[in-house]
Amino acid sequence: MALVSNQAFSIFNFRGPLVAEMIQRGCTVYALAPDYDTASRAAVRALGAIPLDCSMSRTGMNPVRDLLDLLRLAWLLRKLNVDASFTYFIKPVIYGTLAARLAGVKKRYAMIEGAGYVFIDEAAPTKRRRLLRAFVTRLYRAGLSQADRVFMLNGDDKQLFVDENMVDADKVQLLNGIGLDLRHFQTTAPALPPFTFLLVARLLREKGIYEYVTAAREVKARHPAARFILVGSIDLNPGSIAESEVRAWVAEGLIEWPGQVADVRPWIAQASVFVLPSYREGLPRSTQEAMAMGRPVITTDVPGCRDTVADGVNGFIVPARDAGALAGAMRRFIDQPELVPSMGKAGRCVAEQKYDVHTINAVILDIMNIKPELKIPAHSLSQ
């Protein structure tokens, strides 16, 4: 198996259980990424996989570079002589799948974790955004035409991709997210007081960062002791928020910003309520992690986000881009603190029913026809 990503960190942090299960079932896994360092290389080796460097940019559209990267990747895959490929994130899905086809890889699988920012609905999209969306649509169409199966995380994304002729409906397998290890994310008692809200995301406009900060300003006017934590790093994406702006919010006393963290669990443990005011998601892992640790969630009524919350059961759903409604949901928790443990418990139940990584991985591996190794007991051999 050649697993192709454009971010080494994601291989062991998000794909670790899947890679480990592939290896346990007797599969050799080559893990390809462009940004390995000593630590990430060691982490991938610890899973039992073989880390390999490949050239691929995370963002940007440079047709010449992307074509060269595709050809280099095809050459590498042909040299490795793998039986199957598994790609995720936009560029690996498009260029990695095409490269696998060129290399003669027999089975090609892709995962769409979210449609991406170019498919977020805008009231008045710019001409540049319309052109970019048309270009990305054609690229997806080309890449996914060469995939045998495509894993997707919510029905809205499936409908979008099918309606835009980016993928055939019969190729799509819906999953309940990428899943998480529920033993790793265990329930902890919520922090009360002080009342603490937490948002974990890349610092992109479309993650609802501005709405979160605006809501924090409104809530702190009435409840100055309330804490608002923002965990995440500045990104290369066009929608990234400037570091100077984030530091200004910190200086104003609105938020706490530890940046990107290696382990989110201590930060979730500090939280009373998890918040994700995103404009569109696949099926957000951050929300699943918070639910697994017994935190209620405030999120938005958009694809992916609304799939994780039953309004009034394990959290509240508010309109996207509506800081006032977001602040109102936050105040409701402050005014009714008894909702925090009850909704948090309900969220943990949902996580156990839907988001167990081992259950989800079993579906993926069954579709890939990667069967458990047949282990013959030693006493049988002696007979």
Rank of each mutant, 00 (worst) to 15 (best):
M1C: 09
M1Y: 13
M1G: 00
V4F: 11
Q7H: 06
I11R: 09
F12P: 00
F12G: 08
A20W: 03
A20S: 09
E21H: 13
M22D: 10
G26K: 04
T28P: 05
D35W: 11
Y36T: 12
T38D: 14
R45Y: 02
R45I: 08
L47D: 06
L47K: 03
A49Q: 11
I50K: 08
P51M: 15
P51W: 12
M56Q: 09
R58E: 09
R58P: 06
L71G: 08
N81R: 14
V82G: 02
D83A: 14
D83Q: 14
A84R: 14
T87Q: 00
Y88D: 08
P92F: 07
Y95V: 02
V105E: 00
K106V: 10
R108A: 03
Y109M: 09
A110Y: 02
M111C: 02
E113Y: 11
E113A: 13
G116K: 12
G116P: 03
A123L: 10
F135W: 14
V136Q: 01
T137W: 05
G143D: 05
R149A: 08
F151E: 02
L160K: 11
E164G: 03
E164A: 12
N165E: 13
M166K: 03
A169P: 05
K171P: 02
Q173T: 15
A191E: 10
P193Y: 04
F195Q: 06
F195S: 01
F197S: 00
L198N: 00
L204Y: 04
R205K: 14
G208R: 07
E211Q: 15
E211V: 05
T214S: 09
A216G: 12
E218M: 13
R222G: 08
I229N: 03
I229F: 07
G232L: 05
G239W: 01
I241H: 09
S244R: 15
V246I: 15
L254V: 13
Q260P: 08
A269P: 08
F274I: 02
S278Q: 00
L283F: 11
R285G: 12
S286H: 01
S286T: 15
S286Y: 14
Q288G: 03
A290H: 08
A290R: 02
R295M: 06
D301Y: 11
G304H: 01
T308A: 01
V318I: 07
R321T: 11
D322A: 11
G324I: 06
M330R: 00
R331C: 04
R332W: 07
Q336N: 14
V340D: 04
V340A: 04
P341Q: 10
P341F: 10
D356T: 07
N361S: 04
A362G: 05
A362C: 07
I367W: 14
I376S: 06
S382Y: 08
